[in-house]
Simulated assay, not measured.
Amino acid sequence: MARYLLHRLLALIPVLGVVAVVVFLIVHLTPGDPATVILGDEATPQQRLALIAQLGLDKPLAEQFFTWFANVARGNLGVSIFMRDDVLNVFLDHLGPTVSLAVFAQLLAAVPGVWLGIVAARRRGSLVDQSVMGFSMLGISVPSFLLGLFLILTFSVWLRWLPVAGYRPLSEGLWTHLRYLVLPAVALGAIQAALLARMTRSAMLDILNDSYIKTARAKGLAERLVIYRHALRNALIPILTVFGETFGALITGAAVVETVFNIPGVGQLIVNSIARRDFPVIQGAILLITVTYVLLNLFIDMLYGLVDPRVKLGRS
């Protein structure tokens, strides 16, 4: 286990190197610069060039990259051009709303998604199965921002049950916190619930046809025990894989939903930083999200050994 963990952590280094190069080139080769945003369109060329030199953006691109990457290797992600604060501090300030939204959305996705997948598998070919798969296809097809706008129109504008947008921290009370997260969590988690339902159904169908399931039923075990203790446990490996992928997608893909619902999370931070051309924040935030995504998948891989003792990590 320790050897496998060390191998996966070392494999993170080239991944971060590739991400750093790609993000740096995309950010710096895209037209626009922070000097133009800061000074405005009425600034003279001399003022713009002076600010570019002050920010160090007049140096050759290769020199800028190696300077930035050397600082990243030492744990220094740089300073935000607009917020004048360390990129790590800025990222952590915006991380709380994103984590709350992702966790709540994953709960809303996992519980009904797995349950619907089990129900569809048990009633394969029935109207229930076809309905679940139909709704799953619909959930995968509808974009999260479009679903979010529809939810706002229905539950905030017409029914006036929930806030239109905004965010309240947990310190203001659990109910207040959740009221502002319900609609964005549903909009963000609908696609993930559909994916989990389809994967759970597929995995359960494979397991329910195995001989040991037929033997358990022949021995007179209750159907609930057969489904949840034997079948579901052995079907958890692919379900966990999708769970990890979807949770990573929730964290990395929350930008649109956070913008629609005006949630001050990491996604909105990146969107605003792109608009302002805040290079250090864009590069640092994407690197940190990449690390989070890889570590999350590593955690899911390590859960395989707990779910299924037959899985031996690090062994061929």
Rank of each mutant, 00 (worst) to 15 (best):
I213M: 12
T252Q: 03
P112M: 04
T44D: 05
A235K: 01
G314K: 12
N89C: 03
S316W: 12
V87A: 13
P31G: 05
G117F: 07
N76E: 13
M1E: 09
I213T: 14
R48C: 01
F82S: 01
T290Y: 08
V119H: 00
P280Y: 04
V128P: 02
W68S: 08
G148R: 07
V142W: 01
R160H: 13
G248V: 05
P309Q: 13
L57M: 11
K219N: 11
F66H: 10
I213N: 08
L108Y: 08
R229F: 08
S171N: 13
F279R: 03
G134M: 14
V186H: 01
G134N: 10
I274F: 08
L151I: 05
L195S: 07
V132Y: 07
L240P: 01
T292F: 14
R315C: 10
I213P: 09
L16T: 07
A70K: 11
L208E: 05
Q283M: 14
V103C: 01
V87K: 04
L29V: 15
E172A: 11
L5K: 06
S126T: 11
L153I: 14
R198A: 04
L92H: 07
A193C: 14
L170R: 08
A285N: 06
I300K: 04
A110W: 00
R277I: 01
I81K: 00
L195N: 06
R160T: 11
G248M: 07
G253R: 06
T259V: 14
M137L: 15
R160D: 13
G117S: 12
I274M: 12
L127P: 02
S131W: 10
I191P: 00
R122E: 09
R233K: 15
N71D: 12
G148S: 12
V23M: 08
A190S: 15
R122M: 06
L16D: 09
V164F: 10
S136F: 13
Y4T: 11
A216P: 07
A121M: 04
S131Q: 04
I52W: 00
V260S: 05
G189C: 07
A249K: 06
G96I: 12
I191R: 08
A190V: 15
P184D: 11
L127N: 04
A11T: 11
L16N: 06
E42N: 03
P143T: 14
K219I: 10
G56P: 02
L208D: 02
L183C: 09
L153H: 13
V114Q: 08
F65W: 07
I118K: 01
Y293N: 04
Q192R: 12
V23E: 06
Y212M: 03
D206G: 14
L313W: 02
V182L: 15
V27H: 05
D86I: 00
F155A: 10
T154E: 09
L162K: 03
G314L: 09
G148Q: 06
S144I: 00
L221C: 13
A102N: 00
V37H: 11
Y167A: 04
V27Y: 05
V72P: 02
G284R: 02
L151W: 04
Y293W: 11
I13M: 10
F91G: 05
T259S: 14
R3C: 08
V260P: 01
Q47V: 03
V142D: 02
R276Y: 06
P97W: 03
M1I: 12
L151N: 06
I152R: 05
F243W: 06
P169M: 09
I263N: 09
A73H: 04
A120G: 10
N262R: 12
